[in-house]
């Protein structure tokens, strides 16, 4: 009994204070995040656990998430992992790397229907990153892998 109480405490208590839980969404939910009227700047990175260049730059996004949080910037990692891999791969990746940024899995099939809505300059290749100030409508889009130090420079420039 004590053991199961401890186990439950461990599972739920730990989950709340440590790494994030992955959320599965459809495009309209992402569209709402991009076009919301709330304050704040969002750095939305499109990635997948199977995408090597994406995984290599995740650390920069994690660093930016803590570095710029008090400046009203939040990092959102939007994964294109397939539905069956959400627990097996994405949640495992989050836990293993102790990710603190919000992680979403975009479970869509008709890609052509929303890529231009994120940015007309996006070919569809990942990694890709959208920085947006929803309130002012200011947007910047990058279809590339960031190098060390480059992402924080880009965010810094966007804020100022």
């Amino acid at each position: 009994m004590l053991r199961s109480v401890l186990l439950i405490f461990f599972l739920f208590g730990a989950g709340a204070t440590m790494a994030q839980d992955v959320e599965v969404i459809k495009y309209p939910q992402l569209g709402a995040i991009i076009n919301t009227n709330e304050d704040g700047i969002k750095v939305i990175n499109f990635w997948a656990t199977w995408c090597k260049p994406c995984v290599e730059e995740i650390g920069y996004f994690e660093a930016a998430n803590s570095q710029f949080r008090d400046k009203g910037v939040s990092v959102i990692l939007v994964s294109f992992d397939f539905g069956k891999d959400v627990e097996k791969k994405v949640q495992k990746f989050i836990d293993k790397n102790d990710l603190r940024s919000r992680v979403l899995v975009l479970d869509e099939t008709d890609y052509n229907s929303f890529i231009d809505k994120v940015s007309p300059s996006w070919s569809g290749a990942i990694p890709a990153t959208l920085i947006v100030n929803s309130k002012t409508g200011k947007k910047q889009f990058y279809e590339k892998t960031f190098k060390e130090g480059e992402l924080s420079e880009v965010i810094e420039a966007f804020i100022n």
Binding site: P53, Y111, G124, I126, E143, T145
Partner: peptide, 14 residues
């Protein structure tokens, strides 16, 4: 013309 999510091409020298 259509777009789709895909893997970025692994360009030499990147």
């Amino acid at each position: 013309f259509t777009k789709a999510i895909g893997c970025t091409i692994k360009w030499s020298g990147t």
